[in-house]
Design a protein around this nucleic acid. Structure first.
Lengths: 228, 228
DNA sequence: CTTTGTAGGATTGTTCAACGATACTTCAAT
DNA sequence: ATTGAAGTATCGTTGAACAATCCTACAAAG
């Protein structure tokens, strides 16, 4: 019966893994971008940032390369690395991709496991509680969790990863909008409608509702962004 | 009317862009992996590869970082970079993701533009011609194009990128199977069926057929791969 | 024979300095 | 206003060096 405690400890293996400095730097930059601390258009000078973070230029370049696929930064040959300036075209593309992925994942609701379904509901409950307390940060967080939970209904790590990537770009785009309260207020109503439809197993209607939500959220963003 | 020729030349702008050595090295490694020249499990030594390619270790490391998101290589801290060994769990996850994405994109067939629809048909035609000539390489290529064309029905660059990434992993997994002719022969029949259904605008049936195809292709692979 | 501990070797991860390549800015000439 | 040249900033790459980490081999202990 030694296998039980060996397995229990092995579960913590991931926590022991060494993380390279380049990975740490990349994670930190990503986090700062998503918090709006590094605003769109900002140029990240290797010299300045390397000195500020106390890492070598080579390590920083490795971090930039790690971040390339996130599309939060733009790496321009010989000119440097910039925080991406989201455009209306970006948003159109993002929402097209999200519509396919999230609506596709939502169709799997009937076959999804209980934990995945609960996560969808809990995200909306969290946002509702936030709204009752006038805590709009929580409402925004709940909205994020709701959409991530929908993608997770499919149960695919790869799909989750891509969904998170798309969502991060949406968050970057939303930073252009200074006042987001009214948007989240409205989105919460929508999300509650979707969850109610799901509770009644009206999946097709929920999918339609989600698609309609995407059309509206897309227009909200597009009207605030440069056309190119 | 100068705008016409200026625009025509500007269309070639992308061809003039400088490409970093790191990017070139990454592209070359990716291509070699997909061609099966670097087989699953192989360890890519920085020293050996840097010397062989005539690039510095730092440049090679940047290339490895660029390749991380492709999931074709696995970067293990302090141990090096390896060509990924696909497992049955990988394949399960891949096909779950592809089912959501490709079936979701296929639903958009009615609203898709003519060029995108033609690409789907042409891919199957190409494979059919290849089969008639006993050119199974062409059949395989046609299958790839078919699936890529389906994803492209949605018209989203981000979705195309992810679709291609997933497909590349599938190709890596398929390298475990030495003899693929019988698979592609069967898949071609399936693809033709799907195209016929689409021609009759029976989109729901086409989506169902594609989903069924994925279930079968998934089992084909899973039965040939290590469980972990 | 199996397990543990230690030393040595290989190589990865990071830093640093240097230099070539490239883009940008400024100024002068047309 | 446009073009060309010079100067500057910094990115892209290289190579050397060293610390950190993993792996292997061998010896000792049970």
């Amino acid at each position: 019966m030694t296998d039980t405690w060996v397995e229990a400890l092995a579960g913590g293996k991931a926590d022991l893994e060494r993380v390279s400095t380049a990975q740490k730097v990349a994670d930190m930059i990503r986090s700062r971008v998503l918090k709006g601390e590094l605003e769109p258009g900002l140029r990240l000078s290797e010299e300045a940032l390397g000195t500020a973070l106390g890492v070598s230029r080579n390590t920083l370049r490795e971090a930039f390369r790690l971040l390339t696929h996130d599309r939060l930064l733009v790496h321009e040959h010989s000119r440097g690395v910039f925080v991406r300036v989201p455009t209306a075209a970006d948003v159109r593309d993002l929402y097209t991709a999200r519509r396919v992925i999230e609506c596709g994942a939502l169709r799997l609701w009937p076959a999804a496991d209980k934990a995945a379904k609960d996560a969808v509901r809990q995200a909306v409950d969290f946002a509702v509680k936030g709204a009752a307390k006038d805590n709009w940060n929580d409402v925004g967080t709940g909205n994020i969790r709701f959409h991530q939970a929908i993608t997770r209904l499919a149960g695919s790590d790869r799909l989750n990863e891509e969904g998170d990537r798309l969502y991060a770009e949406v968050r970057l785009a939303f930073q252009v909008i200074k006042e987001t309260r009214s948007f989240y207020e409205r989105y919460l109503v929508w999300n509650r409608t979707i969850v109610e439809l799901l509770s009644k197993d009206e999946v097709d209607q929920a999918v339609e509702s989600l698609a309609e939500y995407f059309r509206i959220a897309e227009e909200d963003l597009v009207t605030h962004l440069p056309s190119s």
